[in-house]
Design a protein around this nucleic acid. Sequence first.
DNA 1: CGAAAGGTTGAGTGCTGTCAACGTCCGTGG
DNA 2: CCACGGACGTTGACAGCACTCAACCTTTCG
Lengths: 232, 232
Amino acid sequence: MSSCQTCVVRNRAICSALSDAELDALNRMGRRIAIGRGETLIWEGDESALVANVIEGVLKLSTSTADGREQIVGVVYPSDFIGRPFGDTTQHSVTALSDAQLCLFTRPSFDSFAREYPQLQHKLLERTLTELDRARGWMLLLGRKSASERVATFLLDMARRLAETSCSGADLHERFDLPLTRQQMADLLGLTIETVSRQLTRLRQAGIIDLPDRRAVVILDRAAMEAEAGNG
Amino acid sequence: MSSCQTCVVRNRAICSALSDAELDALNRMGRRIAIGRGETLIWEGDESALVANVIEGVLKLSTSTADGREQIVGVVYPSDFIGRPFGDTTQHSVTALSDAQLCLFTRPSFDSFAREYPQLQHKLLERTLTELDRARGWMLLLGRKSASERVATFLLDMARRLAETSCSGADLHERFDLPLTRQQMADLLGLTIETVSRQLTRLRQAGIIDLPDRRAVVILDRAAMEAEAGNG
DNA sequence: CGAAAGGTTGAGTGCTGTCAACGTCCGTGG
DNA sequence: CCACGGACGTTGACAGCACTCAACCTTTCG
């Protein structure tokens, strides 16, 4: 069994609220699993049975209309928490965008453990409040921004979040690899794949970004990107 | 000083986690205030200084782009909690849509009180998780639904939430008064005022709803509304 | 090599936004 | 009481941005 002591997200995930001894107790309830790119761990509308910490990889949270239109409602990175504690249904699916490692718990056991450790609930509350702020910020993008603003905002957001997750500190990461396909970007931005592609091409032709390959992005002119994003 | 014992939201707000004695302690830190329709209590981007429970009235949470496009990111009702505890800035404005009564706390005092009462934090966590689910559900509407689906979804959602808030129990409330103007509906749905107006007119002409006056809505054909909303 | 998945580009359409005029409601003050 | 003004709402004409449909290109992998 892997030890929480050596876990790479030990000090960033909600586990950071716990002492080593408390963590041992939590560890006994959970297990570490690997899931492959494209695998879905939790399905929209299902009874909430699982929660987890992300150790490695990137996952999407998504919902769909009855006729199959999809919206990605969140993207989670290492140290993020997934699943719906303290509730009986999960409102969105959770699917791996890359191969991923999770620290998995059954919801009932997590719920009862959390009730006994207020510091753990406090960490979870802080995280949930931050996620709520993020979701509401995204509502502004979906409701009010143009396609070009959406794509630019997305690229800046992705650059920032990948920089936070990686260990290279304050590096602004002007180059990074997208963890999403064009279709997934479209599903996140409330656009079609063609519109995303056209906006990326436009930014490239304007000399604002470079696209060395289908996954890589280089931000050449950050000021112009900020302007495209409509901040300022 | 008004007593929490007789507060109309005593058993529905996060206060329900507290005993009468604990509530007295909380009560000593807070104060009850009235704010008028249109008044803004908290401004987007400001330092988070206040939190509150809604006792009476309806308020909106909103954000704007630099050039003034607005998106309403939440609508809160009696017993809901507003403000951003455990964080230094508020990401959205809070404005009264009707005259309202609030139970107000300064954030530092609320934060430190909450840290001492895990049951209170637990209630707040449950509420925040529910709000996050709701916000993510709204992202599907903003990103993927047509104008007619948005308006129909909104009307059904409003009917349901007003029924929950009012005391008439399981009554489906086929008639209700909108707490929002057409402009506010547009800002919530990511549409323009003209599109909202046209969709309402269309629903009325189709015999699905009636609009007795500018604030009232009567749902005449709930099945047709569900179909319009794209849930089926 | 061939097939499938992912991505780009082009042509045309349509939904929703923009601009504008007009209608309705309501409070205020003469 | 009535006239007036302003906020709110509706309707129409038109335009444009993003979607749809389609062809084609690139990369990957068996």
